[in-house]
Amino acid sequence: MKIEIIGAGPAGLYFALLAKKHDRSHRITVHEQNPEGATYGWGVVFSDIGLSFLKEADPDFFQAFIAHHERCDYMEIVHRGTHVQVHGNHFSRTSRIDMLRVLQQACEREGVRIEYGRRVEDARALAADCDLLVAADGGNSAVRTQMAEQFRPRFVRRRNKFAWYGTHQRFHPVSLIFRETAHGVFIAHSYQYGPELSTFLVEVDPDTWRRAGLDTASEEESRRFCAEVFRPELGGNELLTNRSLWFEANIVSNERWSHGNIVLLGDALRTVHFSLGSGTRMAMQDAIALHRGVVAHPADLPAALQAFESARRDASSSFQQSASRSLDWYENVGERMHLDPLPFAYDYMRRTGKVSHEDLRQRDPHFTRACEALQPAA
């Protein structure tokens, strides 16, 4: 097959790698609009469940993929300055640029052609010259925009404001920090992803954001303000910027996943909010499912694309529903700030409705026993 892929993110590169390793006669080109080595953001997080899919799909690549990951088997919820640990939550973290570098090098070793600084202006024209066009060009997909009538995307903009930062303060566990201020509640999502760096995502509701003057603050002024809010956790370390501008979460879904020989993949297909930390996992699972569809139906592209959609649509919808409930919890966290640290952490862990008390008991019996001890006797 002649396969053209738009977007050198995890979805596009991983599909290219799997397809080329399976059949070296495939002619695969990846088109990426940004220069080589240019990426935005700090670290990415995988759960053990997320990594298990990658190990099953390609055990050899999996070992290279995780070689430099930071690992931890617990998380912390910080409320009123109290650090509540919840064990049995296994996370593996790496920098986004290192993840993409490992994928890029693996693709190039197999003979995948990657063209950087190459913006595809006409997806239909490119599709007419190949057997399969994979649109893996992210949450702001140009292909999806060009063909909105065919894919019928739906967008739901959420209310909270976010800014991505980094820091040299090392947050070994995945840490959720909730801080009450005179302006309102600030939240930090933080985790170490390399020997010297951590991601530090700041979240705040729009009213608090405006009361704090962040609606008119510059990037540098916002950075300094947020660093002072979380000074007890940051210590002497500062926040670092990388296009750290305030934005709102835009949740994307599509009524149709493919049109002709064009298929959406990863964030172009569906976004998963970072409060669940599974966007990259979902993108790479999409790549696995699309690859398996093509392998199962090598001479029947419509059947291959239908197999991909059948394998992934239910999981995609379920994950987006969980993400929506998680977002609801964060957007209304002010209603829960009166809780003591342990009940607050328990409420957080069950925010999506997907984690039962028994699930928590299996993960961390000490945590659940401590929560049970606080319950009034029947």
Rank of each mutant, 00 (worst) to 15 (best):
Y348C: 04
H297W: 06
R281M: 12
A303T: 05
S258P: 02
H357T: 14
H273I: 14
V263R: 03
A304G: 09
V355T: 15
S278C: 12
W329H: 08
R361V: 12
W329R: 11
I251K: 03
S275E: 12
S275W: 03
G277W: 01
A323T: 08
S318T: 13
R350M: 15
L342H: 00
A268F: 01
H273P: 13
R256K: 13
P298D: 12
P302N: 11
E331V: 14
R350S: 09
A315Q: 03
P343R: 01
A296I: 04
R312S: 05
R256Y: 11
S253G: 10
V355N: 07
Y348S: 07
P298N: 06
L265E: 03
S324F: 03
L269S: 13
V252R: 07
S253P: 05
F274E: 10
I262A: 09
D328Q: 14
R325Q: 14
A303W: 04
Q306H: 09
L269Y: 02
K354A: 15
S278N: 15
A268H: 02
W329G: 15
E358G: 07
N250C: 15
A345N: 01
A289Y: 00
L339V: 02
K354I: 02
F274M: 11
L360K: 06
S278V: 14
G260S: 06
H273F: 07
V333C: 12
V355I: 15
I251R: 01
E358Q: 14
P343I: 02
G334Y: 00
L305V: 11
M349T: 02
I251D: 11
S310E: 13
I288F: 06
A311R: 05
H357A: 15
N261E: 07
